[in-house]
């Protein structure tokens, strides 16, 4: 990135500091950035460090001081059977969610990139599930698949997929499927919006040239389109993985982790530790592990994307 350096020197040689401003460009830049940086330290940095500290402490509910307990909280979380179960469920959930949200998103984007009539309206439609809060997607799907008031049972019954109205969320496997589906309904749109943005930067001449050379649609996809959107694919997959691992909203509103522990994802477990069992130490230990995983996964992605020096981007 050569421009800013050039500009600063240009500004410096050109401009003696104006009247009324005794700050150099460097100082001015710092002053402008400082309020936001201080805010981020206060609302991200300190809470992050505080959570890390809690994870090594026993934190009483009263005003009594917390006591240092070493790695007990981590041992407690990792040694708990429900953690292993929850980890397995979370991995299943994430796999399904990432697959569905990414593949559907890619298909939607490819479809809406075609010169079809009504494409403008369809693109407006595409934004709707994304603009719908995840929690509301959960509410809609919960009642859509409800055996009493829902419409999905009737549709599936009419076309002969099911022989009886089913309380899907009372079934362990169906509950997982539908909590995935509700969240993926929202997220597929997000993926598609990003894929579409990437597809729209693909120069038309390249595709046309491939056509002239007699490439089939599949060959054009494999040879031209897919390589073009691959960086975006990585971004989308990473974001979806993180959202999958951290998914809370749809599960909370649809099943609260049930039936049994069938949909108890790690964030649900975290909620229970903190707010049901009021165990801030153990909850923080779990939170730290989730946070570290999320930060690691996205950092690796940043490096893979060659953005290890974002200022040079």
């Amino acid at each position: 990135m050569t421009t800013p350096r050039r500009e600063t020197t240009a500004a410096r040689t050109k401009a003696p500091p104006q009247a009324g401003s005794r700050l150099s460009d460097r100082q001015f830049g710092l002053v402008l950035a400082l309020p936001a940086i201080i805010s981020l330290v206060l609302v991200v940095g300190i809470p992050g460090i505080q959570t890390l500290i809690y994870s090594f402490q026993r934190v009483p509910l009263s005003d009594d001081p917390a006591t240092f307990v070493g790695t007990d909280n981590y041992g407690k979380v990792l040694g708990d059977e429900s953690f292993v179960e929850s980890l397995v469920v979370t991995l299943q959930y994430t796999a399904g969610y990432v697959l569905l949200a990414t593949v559907l998103g890619l298909l939607f984007a490819l479809l809406l990139d075609q010169p079809l009539r009504g494409r403008g309206i369809a693109r407006a439609l595409l934004i709707i599930p994304w603009a719908t809060p995840v929690i509301i997607a959960g509410v809609m799907w919960k009642w859509l698949i409800d055996p009493q008031v829902g419409g999905l049972n009737a549709v599936l019954f009419e076309i002969g997929v099911i022989e009886d109205y089913k309380p899907f969320l009372a079934d362990r496997e169906w509950a997982l499927v539908f909590t995935i589906l509700a969240a993926a309904w929202h997220q597929a749109s997000f993926s598609a919006l990003l894929f579409l943005a990437s597809l729209q930067t693909l120069p038309n001449e390249i595709v046309e040239a491939a056509k002239v050379d007699g490439a089939t649609a599949w060959q054009r996809f494999r040879g031209v389109v897919f390589p073009w959107i691959r960086p975006m694919l990585l971004v989308v997959v990473i974001i979806n993985v993180i959202y999958g691992v951290l998914q809370f909203d749809t599960v909370w509103v649809m099943t609260q982790g049930g039936p049994g522990d069938a949909t108890t994802l790690l964030p649900i477990l975290l909620y229970r530790q903190l707010f049901i069992f009021s165990d801030i130490g153990a909850g923080s230990a779990l939170a730290v592990m989730l946070g570290v995983v999320a930060v690691l996964v996205s950092s690796i992605a940043l490096i893979l994307l060659g953005r290890d020096d974002p200022l040079a981007a």
């Binding site: 809470p47 992050g48 959570t51 930060v295």
Partner: peptide, 13 residues
């Protein structure tokens, strides 16, 4: 990159 859910305990207290 820091997920909100990971720092809720500190906010709560």
């Amino acid at each position: 990159l820091v997920p909100p859910i990971a720092i809720v305990a500190a906010f709560f207290v």
